[in-house]
Design a protein around this nucleic acid. Structure first.
Lengths: 350, 350
DNA sequence: CTGTTATGGGAAACCGGTGTCATTTGCAAG
DNA sequence: CTTGCAAATGACACCGGTTTCCCATAACAG
């Protein structure tokens, strides 16, 4: 029965460029010219080849192209495990942009604290001959990484909370403005003793958000004693700890701005543990609008930044010139974050 | 200055197999044999070549290997957007297994409801010549997908809540036993009117969890009126809706088992809205132990299944024979889920 | 009508590995 | 000291594209 010498897995066998060339009666180089829109071709020739390609459903072999071009059609997503939801939303945005293209997304977590981090990323980029990478915060803030990408001739986009670089290599949100708006909201409700739970030192986003907070208070003529600022690490647990320290103050702050939702959820958790009513005795605002913000009780007022759209924009910046995008479709580099009002803010009790 | 004729991006230029062969004074085929541990080699030859490889830091070009082998060193993760946290944990587990190997992870979301889903996956597998794929629930339950993988000669592992296939192609958790344990826990606390919020129809996991619940009740001689079973969709919102319908019952159930944490969080949210005290007036148990379970108040008693470990196991099943694993390191195919007791369960009020 | 120049298109080398097969080497048996 | 056979190694084609270079043809100027 099975007498075929080399079945070679029929399901996988697909037409090659040679088949197309033979069917169209041209050389494979000419077919290549059609595929890459390079060189000059007779319209007749092009149309004929395109017809054959359409009929046969031919798709160029990505591996062969990668070898010949010295460049793969893969986009890397390099991150350092910040927020699970953010990574996933970012992935979603990138994948939306990659849909119906020849690009695929390769995920790569790295360890920022490892001394080998740069070498790891370098070997990742070089070995896989990545077409481009998206760098997620906080490692997107590391300039050495950007230089590395330049060096190995790999396109890159840095995601950030503020301008990090030229627009071609950056997608940012206006966190500062959003924090100012959020803080003004608390002030407008009548709060004057407002605590801040900051992000970890060294994070650009943490700095920017803190700046916005302090600016808004200063603008309203409210002075901010150092004791009202508690250090956080962007984690739920650090939010609890920071909240505890703020709760011990006399008098207690009537509102707390946490630099991300995880910590804001921690504040809420800590408040419940102590029997502090939210929002009656304590108002809380978070940042990020992750799913948890809408799932706790009361649902958190927070700041939403359009992560998915930013991911899409980042990916389009990278693959833009490889696909047909008109110049006016320039992807935006900065995105607007907005305040989402839910149930965790109320006027302070007299 | 820049007078070098063809810099060719020096940072990228790496030694090729020809360089190694020349330096070691052998043919490139022999070098290839060392890399692939294939054929028989003189120890002297092997050592010499290995030394050269070590000195030069040579790494085989993945693209060339992919072309020659007709098989890429990429592992695909195919999912249909169930739970964000689950996807990410699964990624984490897979990436742990892939660390320090030549494999990379390529993420691919698909749309289960699309008629083109199978074709999409097929072209993904075939085009990228994937080495293997991990199929996440719920699409892992689609037998046609498994057949497709066989057909295109792509290794695969299906993640599931129960046995779907032979152990080589499956990693599962014992959801049924875990649900039984959780239900017994409620019964032991004295609950008799226990509501169930099920998963969507057609999901294997939903069926298995419901079975376990019903078994545990029957075992205790508690009869389960149809009205105590509310349909859910594994989403927070569907959890709220289902809870509302159960709350309208007279008498109200004293405990609710939700088939995942999202819905359990919805129950908690709905209870707060109505002023029902948890756990005093209502006990809740969820499933999955996603981060949200520990972040709401009170923290949810739930069932934890070791997703990360399962992801790692799945990846190792795929790349196992390509890396050096001893036979006794056989990866387990079934994992044990355990009850995590937190604050959302208490005895019913008299 | 011939010489020059654009232009479309093809032959062959190349990218960096792996497969097949032939050849050489090493060692034990005859 | 052959012969025999297996182990060790190399030559060469091949994977499926791209690039380089060169030729053939047509258009154009003189």
């Amino acid at each position: 029965m099975k007498s075929v010498p080399k079945p070679r897995n029929m399901a996988v066998s697909k037409p090659t460029i040679n088949d197309i060339a033979r069917l169209a009666g041209v050389s494979k180089k000419t077919v290549s010219r059609v595929i890459n829109r390079s060189g000059s071709l007779h319209d007749d020739t092009r149309e004929k080849i395109e017809a054959v390609i359409r009929e046969t459903g031919y798709v160029p072999n990505p591996q062969a192209r990668a070898l010949a071009l010295g460049r793969n059609f893969l986009i890397g997503l390099v991150h350092d495990n910040p927020n699970a939801q953010m990574i996933l939303n970012m992935q979603q945005g990138i994948l939306e942009a990659l849909r119906d293209t020849d690009f695929e997304l390769v995920v790569r977590p790295v360890d920022r604290s490892s001394p080998d981090m740069l070498d790891d990323v370098r070997s990742f980029l070089v070995r896989q001959r990545l077409y481009g990478v998206v760098l997620l915060p906080p490692i997107s803030e590391i300039d050495a990484l950007a230089r590395l990408c330049e060096e190995v001739n790999c396109k890159y986009v840095r995601m950030g909370s503020s301008v990090l670089d030229d627009p071609d290599h950056m997608v940012a949100s206006n966190d500062r403005d959003a924090v100012i708006e959020a803080t003004r909201h608390l002030i407008a409700q009548g709060h004057r003793r407002i605590g801040l739970i900051s992000g970890p030192h060294g994070f650009n986003s943490a700095q920017v958000r803190r700046d916005g907070f302090e600016f808004a208070l200063a603008e309203a003529g409210i002075k901010l004693p150092r004791s009202l600022i508690a250090d956080g690490q962007y984690t739920f647990e650090s939010g609890i700890a920071a909240a505890e320290s703020l709760f011990d103050l006399q008098p207690r702050p009537t509102a707390i701005f946490a630099c991300n939702d995880e910590m804001a959820a921690g504040v809420l958790f800590a408040a419940r543990s102590r029997g502090i009513a939210v929002p009656e005795e304590l108002s809380i605002i978070g940042f990020d609008d992750t799913p948890i913000a809408a799932r706790v009780w009361p649902p958190l007022t927070t700041v939403r930044w359009p992560i998915v759209a930013m991911g899409r924009s980042a990916a389009l910046k990278i693959i833009g010139d490889a696909t047909s995008v008109s110049p006016e479709d320039q992807e935006p580099s900065t995105f607007v974050s907005t305040l989402v009002r839910r149930g965790s803010v109320a006027p302070p009790m007299k």
